[in-house]
């Protein structure tokens, strides 16, 4: 188990295996995204009150979910960095942050676009929107701190600690924002809560959530592979990979590095 863990966390192994996985994950992402978009835009029924603006939910909700779980994953990577000092986790931390920030931004903006036709305002300081905005600030903090530190592992360790401190604070922030919101309740905008969404309404949502996670997987792998090439440029296998035409098959990399080590 332990050796497996270490093997999994070796950049070289990850580079090779992710190269094999990437096409499949990318295909699945395109498939789910296409299916989700068609279901969400053409097949889902319009809401009886909100009309077709309700369809924005299929972008807004998946991005909001992903925004939060991205932060969670970033903090988990941070914990791994601080406890086990695993290089791959350092890279993951750096790669997740920009995606998380952009998806949080998407959730905020689509929330506004959905809010205007539905409630007549682009932005209300409600609990959910406000905590989303603070989440965006937390992402900015992690990104800014990482980019200010010159050494890669130092940046990762500082970013890890900050991500973890942020994670501890998120429930407190959430609670405080909810408290604050109930005190300053603006004119009540409430999502028309229906006891049960019909299956035609929630199934596109499910497909879209899966599609968003798959896209996240693709982006993470792409970014990680770049990061590995950059940070491991002194190792033999990366040198070999760079020397041969870029998209060489992974097996030749294995062979060349094996012969190198043998020699």
């Amino acid at each position: 188990m332990w050796t497996w863990f270490h093997k999994l966390s070796s950049p070289k192994w990850f580079y090779q295996i992710s190269g094999r996985w990437l096409p499949w994950i990318a295909c699945a992402a395109v498939l789910f995204l296409t299916a989700g978009l068609i279901m969400a835009l053409a097949y889902a029924p319009a809401d009886y009150q909100q009309g077709n603006s309700f369809r924005i939910m299929y972008i807004h909700v998946p991005s909001a979910i992903l925004a939060q779980s991205c932060y969670m994953m970033m903090a988990v990577a941070g914990g791994i960095v601080l406890i086990w000092r695993i290089k791959l986790a350092e890279m993951a931390l750096k790669c997740i942050a920009p995606f998380g920030a952009s998806i949080t931004f998407l959730a905020l903006v689509t929330g506004g676009i959905w809010g205007y036709p539905t409630w007549g305002t682009w932005w209300v300081w409600d609990a959910r929107g406000t905590s989303m905005l603070i989440l965006l600030f937390l992402y900015f903090g992690v990104i800014a701190l990482q980019s200010a530190i010159s050494t890669a592992s130092g940046a990762a360790r500082a970013g890890s600690l900050l991500a973890l401190v942020g994670l501890v604070n998120i429930p407190i922030i959430k609670y405080s924002v909810e408290w604050w919101n109930t005190l300053h309740q603006p004119a009540t905008f409430k999502l028309t809560e229906k006891p049960s969404m019909p299956v035609e309404m929630w199934s596109p949502l499910l497909v879209m959530v899966i599609a968003f996670y798959l896209v996240f997987g693709v982006v993470l792998i792409l970014r990680l592979r770049n990061e590995i090439l950059e940070r491991e440029h002194k190792t033999n296998w990366v040198r070999k990979l760079i020397e041969t035409p870029i998209e060489s098959s992974t097996t030749s990399v294995e062979k060349t590095s094996a012969t190198k080590r043998g020699a």
């Binding site: 600030f137 800014a144 942020g166 405080s176």
Partner: peptide, 29 residues
């Protein structure tokens, strides 16, 4: 976290300000 950095001042505000929000909220209320 920012002690060794040049121009750490703005960065410091950027990373800690969001964490202060709960305290501000409860104090103001």
């Amino acid at each position: 976290l920012t002690v060794g950095l040049h121009r750490g001042g703005v960065l410091l505000s950027l990373i800690v300000l969001p964490l202060f929000i709960p305290i501000l909220v409860f104090s103001a209320s």
